[in-house]
Simulated assay, not measured.
Amino acid sequence: MDNSADPSTHAWSTPVGAGIAGCIGGVILLGGAVVVSNDPAGSVLMGIAGVLLVALGVYTLLVRPRLELSAGRPATLTVRGLTGRRSYTPDRVERIRLLSMRRVGRRVGQLEIDVLDDDADTFRRDDGSAGPRADTRLLVFSRWDLGTDLMSVVDALRAAGFHVDDDR
């Protein structure tokens, strides 16, 4: 969901409602684990599922926005994770790819971003070999992570000056 006020800044993250629903569902599963306490195996499985669902809900609520684009000069791509924020300029982004794959009878997309490590040189490889360099980190985002259609994210990245390979 692009929830930015400044038109030169875009921010995408999982919808808040999905995080809240995950937390509520996890609490319901934990309550169900207590109710079925006469079935130890079922109680343990429901308890584990409840804890994991609450953790996923809390994660989606804490890590916001997941991806942010500031279209200044130079454009900056900021990724937020549990360990904090990391920002990348176009010279630190090795490759951006939009992939489309078949999963369970339907097509799903993934946005892959190869970024250079903080200590890596920003020189571009001229040897003609395919694929990313060895000193890159792979960041993978799905529609769930960004809360919107991946094509709108790709369009915003292209408009900001990032090159995107489209594999559809």
Rank of each mutant, 00 (worst) to 15 (best):
V93C: 01
L99W: 12
G109E: 07
R95P: 05
G84K: 15
R95H: 09
R92V: 02
R86E: 14
D91M: 08
E94L: 07
G105N: 05
T76F: 06
I96L: 01
G109H: 09
V104W: 09
V104R: 12
I113Y: 06
R97Q: 12
T89V: 15
Q110P: 00
G105H: 03
D118S: 13
G84A: 07
P90N: 03
R97Y: 01
D118C: 07
R102I: 02
L99S: 06
T76Y: 01
D119I: 09
A75Q: 04
G105C: 02
E112C: 11
L82E: 07
L77D: 09
V104E: 12
V104G: 02
L116C: 03
P90D: 07
L77V: 14
E94Q: 05
D119G: 13
D119A: 15
I96D: 00
D118K: 12
D114W: 15
R86Y: 10
R95M: 14
A75M: 04
L98T: 09
D118G: 09
A75H: 06
D117G: 14
G84E: 12
R73Q: 07
R107F: 00
P74K: 05
V93Q: 06
A75Y: 02
G84H: 08
R73M: 03
V108I: 11
R86N: 14
R102C: 05
T76H: 01
L111N: 09
S87G: 03
R86W: 10
I96G: 01
V93H: 02
T83S: 14
